[in-house]
Design a protein around this nucleic acid. Structure first.
Lengths: 104, 104
DNA sequence: CCAAGGTCTTAAAATATCAAAATAGAAAAC
DNA sequence: GTTTTCTATTTTGATATTTTAAGACCTTGG
């Protein structure tokens, strides 16, 4: 390796992998896609349209909230979720990080 | 919702989430980044440069191989790994799928 | 052939994730 | 103020992932 300095930002690696872990579930991808299609939407519409149990939906929403991918606005009874597209961009960057970096 | 048809390609959702799950670990991101920086590289150099145990490295390489993100070419003793950038592109697309689709 | 080097596999223990069901909380409707 | 509606939390059991340590499998060099 002719003295290659291998320096990695471990915090970044952990953060990136946490974001990906938050996305790495079919139901969560489904939920995200549905929210994206509807701009922002309340929980009832999510689980009734996607036919997921309320409790399970809520738990996945929590994981997405904790990771920062989703945010919620509470208006009375309704919890309206929306996507933090800047966080999505971070995930994208974490992936394009090792994408053809050295090729062309 | 005015009669919104909610159609999801479940196979695609599963495939996408599997790819993301393969990436969703700090060591695997580290390994990928290192391979990307070096175009392709054998296992010994990976674990010695990244200071990960050989066995752990091998197991994470297996996960990345199984997911399709990495491929390996065996030449004698050496196993040379390289990134399948087309698979990386698929992950990227799975993410850009819900990225500002409705905004601007 | 034998030893050494390079990598993979297996097995076990610790940890994390998941679904399911039940319960809790908070706001609105009555 | 009680009930209903909407959502979140907790708990439990099942399953999956991760690490660790040990051993197995090839290949090359002597």
């Amino acid at each position: 390796m002719k003295g290659t300095k291998v320096i990695f930002d471990n915090d970044k690696l952990h953060y990136s992998s946490e974001l990906m872990r938050a996305l790495a579930h079919p139901l969560r991808l489904k939920i995200l896609e549905f929210i994206d299609e509807n701009q922002s939407i309340n929980v009832n519409k999510i689980y009734s349209n996607l036919d997921i149990e309320q409790s399970i939906t809520s738990q996945h929403l929590k994981i997405l909230r904790m990771s920062g991918v989703l945010s919620v606005e509470v208006t009375g009874k309704w919890h309206v979720y929306y996507i933090n597209y800047d966080v999505i961009n971070k995930v994208e960057k974490a992936i394009t990080r090792f994408k053809n970096k050295n090729l062309a």
